[in-house]
Computed example of a mutant assay.
Amino acid sequence: MATPALKARRRSDYKFQLEYRTRWSDNDMYHHVNNSVYYYLFDSVVNTYLIQHCSLHPPTSPQIGLVVHSHCDYLAPIEFPAVVDLALRVRKLGNSSVTYEIAVFERGHEEVKAVGEFIHVFVDRRSRRPAKNGMSEELQKGLERLLADRPRL
């Protein structure tokens, strides 16, 4: 996606948000949040939503999500101490896959600091193959609520 479009993102473009307070250990030697921490945050906001709104229970659910793709566009640094808002929406929802978009905003600043993409393919826990009928109904319905082209809840 083009950088100008990403830089135009606002909190209101996303339907689920989660707060994160940076830790001293999140910083790298350049005194900003390390790139690897962003991926940790992406995983956290996605899985928080799945657990709270899609009835996913990672240790026992019959289906699990496997990450098949992820990337991040870093637009501006964040440094400790900071509170960030992780904003989540679904850009594409398929039969067994979902493409999430996650934006990272620093509290007190309107401009987006990073925008990431994360693709899950939901598979049977045992076989690691997509289910014949795709993802579960609860999962599908929960993810539909985050579709980018739907009105905000």
Results as ranks from 00 to 15, higher is better:
Ala2Asn: 14
Pro4Gln: 02
Lys7Gly: 05
Arg11Gln: 14
Arg11Asp: 01
Ser12Gln: 13
Tyr14Asn: 05
Lys15Asn: 09
Lys15Val: 13
Leu18Arg: 04
Leu18Gln: 09
Glu19Tyr: 03
Arg21Ser: 12
Tyr30Trp: 14
His32Lys: 03
Val33Phe: 07
Ser36Val: 10
Thr48Asn: 12
Thr48Gly: 07
Gln52Phe: 11
Cys54Tyr: 01
Leu56Gln: 09
Pro62Asp: 13
Pro62Asn: 12
Ile64Gln: 10
Val67Lys: 01
His71Pro: 05
Cys72Ser: 06
Asp73His: 10
Ala76Phe: 02
Glu79Ile: 03
Pro81Lys: 03
Ala82Asp: 00
Val83Ser: 10
Val90Thr: 08
Gly94Val: 11
Glu101Leu: 05
Ala103Gln: 04
Val104Ile: 13
Phe105Glu: 07
Glu106Gln: 11
Glu106Asn: 01
Gly108Lys: 04
Glu111Tyr: 09
Lys113Cys: 09
Ala114Cys: 04
Glu117Asn: 15
Arg125Gln: 05
Arg126Lys: 15
Ser127Gln: 08
Arg129Pro: 05
Arg129Met: 15
Arg129Asn: 04
Ala131Ile: 07
Ala131Tyr: 07
Ala131Cys: 14
Ala131Arg: 15
Lys132Trp: 10
Lys132Glu: 12
Asn133Trp: 07
Gly134His: 01
Met135Ala: 00
Met135Asp: 04
Ser136Phe: 08
Gln140Asn: 14
Leu143Ala: 04
Leu143Pro: 02
Glu144Trp: 04
Leu146Arg: 00
Leu147Thr: 05
Asp149Thr: 12
